[in-house]
Amino acid sequence: MSHQTSQPKRSHEPVFWGLFGAGGMLTAFLTPVMILITGILIPLGIIDSDALSYERVHGFATSWYGAAILLVLIALPLWHTLHRIFHGLHDIGVHRGRDWQQVICYGFAFAVSVFCFTLLIQML
Protein backbone atom coordinates (compact mmCIF):
# COMPACT_ATOMS: atom_id res chain seq x y z
CA MET A 1 0.00 0.00 0.00
CA SER A 2 1.66 3.20 -0.99
CA HIS A 3 -0.48 6.23 -0.22
CA GLN A 4 2.37 7.57 1.89
CA THR A 5 1.18 10.87 3.22
CA SER A 6 3.90 12.44 5.34
CA GLN A 7 4.33 10.09 8.29
CA PRO A 8 2.80 11.65 11.41
CA LYS A 9 5.32 12.44 14.13
CA ARG A 10 5.23 10.36 17.30
CA SER A 11 4.31 12.37 20.37
CA HIS A 12 6.23 12.11 23.62
CA GLU A 13 3.01 12.67 25.52
CA PRO A 14 2.89 9.03 26.76
CA VAL A 15 5.65 9.82 29.28
CA PHE A 16 3.69 12.69 30.84
CA TRP A 17 0.38 10.94 30.42
CA GLY A 18 1.71 7.89 32.25
CA LEU A 19 2.75 10.04 35.21
CA PHE A 20 -0.53 11.96 34.96
CA GLY A 21 -2.49 8.72 35.11
CA ALA A 22 -0.53 7.29 38.02
CA GLY A 23 -0.79 10.55 39.94
CA GLY A 24 -4.49 10.87 39.13
CA MET A 25 -5.17 7.37 40.37
CA LEU A 26 -3.28 7.97 43.60
CA THR A 27 -5.00 11.31 44.07
CA ALA A 28 -8.44 9.82 43.47
CA PHE A 29 -7.96 7.12 46.09
CA LEU A 30 -5.87 8.82 48.76
CA THR A 31 -5.86 12.61 48.55
CA PRO A 32 -9.30 13.06 50.14
CA VAL A 33 -8.39 11.09 53.25
CA MET A 34 -4.96 12.73 53.42
CA ILE A 35 -6.52 16.19 53.37
CA LEU A 36 -9.09 15.05 55.90
CA ILE A 37 -6.37 13.89 58.30
CA THR A 38 -3.65 16.52 57.96
CA GLY A 39 -5.84 19.49 57.13
CA ILE A 40 -8.98 18.98 59.18
CA LEU A 41 -9.10 16.21 61.78
CA ILE A 42 -5.67 16.85 63.32
CA PRO A 43 -5.74 20.67 63.29
CA LEU A 44 -9.21 20.58 64.87
CA GLY A 45 -8.04 18.09 67.49
CA ILE A 46 -10.57 15.47 66.44
CA ILE A 47 -7.65 13.10 66.01
CA ASP A 48 -5.08 13.65 68.74
CA SER A 49 -2.07 15.49 67.34
CA ASP A 50 0.11 12.74 68.82
CA ALA A 51 -0.81 10.84 65.69
CA LEU A 52 1.52 13.21 63.85
CA SER A 53 4.02 13.74 66.67
CA TYR A 54 7.59 14.58 65.70
CA GLU A 55 8.96 11.21 66.86
CA ARG A 56 6.36 9.27 64.97
CA VAL A 57 6.58 11.12 61.67
CA HIS A 58 10.35 11.47 61.86
CA GLY A 59 10.71 7.78 62.60
CA PHE A 60 8.54 6.98 59.60
CA ALA A 61 10.29 9.40 57.27
CA THR A 62 13.70 8.05 58.16
CA SER A 63 12.85 4.45 57.38
CA TRP A 64 13.56 3.61 53.76
CA TYR A 65 10.01 2.47 53.04
CA GLY A 66 8.52 5.45 54.87
CA ALA A 67 10.68 7.79 52.82
CA ALA A 68 9.58 6.10 49.61
CA ILE A 69 5.90 6.32 50.60
CA LEU A 70 6.15 9.99 51.52
CA LEU A 71 7.94 10.82 48.28
CA VAL A 72 5.20 9.16 46.26
CA LEU A 73 2.35 10.68 48.30
CA ILE A 74 3.73 14.20 48.06
CA ALA A 75 5.35 14.33 44.63
CA LEU A 76 3.34 12.02 42.37
CA PRO A 77 0.10 14.05 42.56
CA LEU A 78 2.03 17.02 41.19
CA TRP A 79 2.77 15.18 37.95
CA HIS A 80 -0.97 14.74 37.67
CA THR A 81 -1.98 18.29 38.55
CA LEU A 82 0.67 20.15 36.57
CA HIS A 83 -0.25 18.10 33.50
CA ARG A 84 -3.81 19.29 33.89
CA ILE A 85 -2.72 22.86 34.48
CA PHE A 86 -0.53 22.75 31.36
CA HIS A 87 -3.43 21.57 29.20
CA GLY A 88 -5.86 23.85 31.02
CA LEU A 89 -3.81 26.87 29.98
CA HIS A 90 -4.41 25.93 26.35
CA ASP A 91 -8.13 25.45 27.09
CA ILE A 92 -8.52 28.95 28.50
CA GLY A 93 -6.77 30.44 25.52
CA VAL A 94 -3.17 30.98 26.64
CA HIS A 95 -1.68 29.81 23.38
CA ARG A 96 1.55 31.75 23.40
CA GLY A 97 4.80 30.13 24.49
CA ARG A 98 3.52 26.57 24.82
CA ASP A 99 7.12 25.35 25.05
CA TRP A 100 7.83 27.56 28.02
CA GLN A 101 4.54 26.66 29.65
CA GLN A 102 5.55 23.04 29.35
CA VAL A 103 9.00 23.64 30.85
CA ILE A 104 7.53 25.62 33.74
CA CYS A 105 4.69 23.19 34.50
CA TYR A 106 6.59 19.92 34.41
CA GLY A 107 9.69 21.71 35.70
CA PHE A 108 7.71 22.66 38.79
CA ALA A 109 6.61 19.07 39.41
CA PHE A 110 10.20 17.96 38.85
CA ALA A 111 11.65 20.61 41.18
CA VAL A 112 9.32 19.75 44.06
CA SER A 113 10.01 16.04 43.54
CA VAL A 114 13.77 16.65 43.73
CA PHE A 115 13.25 18.93 46.74
CA CYS A 116 11.37 16.19 48.64
CA PHE A 117 13.78 13.52 47.51
CA THR A 118 16.77 15.52 48.78
CA LEU A 119 15.14 16.22 52.14
CA LEU A 120 14.27 12.57 52.62
CA ILE A 121 17.76 11.38 51.66
CA GLN A 122 19.32 13.86 54.07
CA MET A 123 17.16 12.61 56.91
CA LEU A 124 17.75 8.92 56.23
Binding site: T38, A75, F115
Partner: peptide, 14 residues
Protein backbone atom coordinates in the same frame (compact mmCIF):
# COMPACT_ATOMS: atom_id res chain seq x y z
CA UNK B 1 -1.06 21.32 43.79
CA UNK B 2 -1.25 23.70 46.74
CA UNK B 3 -1.91 20.81 49.09
CA UNK B 4 1.14 18.92 47.85
CA UNK B 5 3.21 22.07 48.37
CA UNK B 6 1.92 22.33 51.94
CA UNK B 7 3.06 18.75 52.51
CA UNK B 8 6.44 19.41 50.88
CA UNK B 9 6.82 22.39 53.15
CA UNK B 10 5.93 20.15 56.11
CA UNK B 11 8.69 17.79 55.03
CA UNK B 12 11.15 20.69 55.09
CA UNK B 13 10.01 21.63 58.60
CA UNK B 14 10.32 18.01 59.68
Amino acid sequence: TIYSCILAWGLLRL
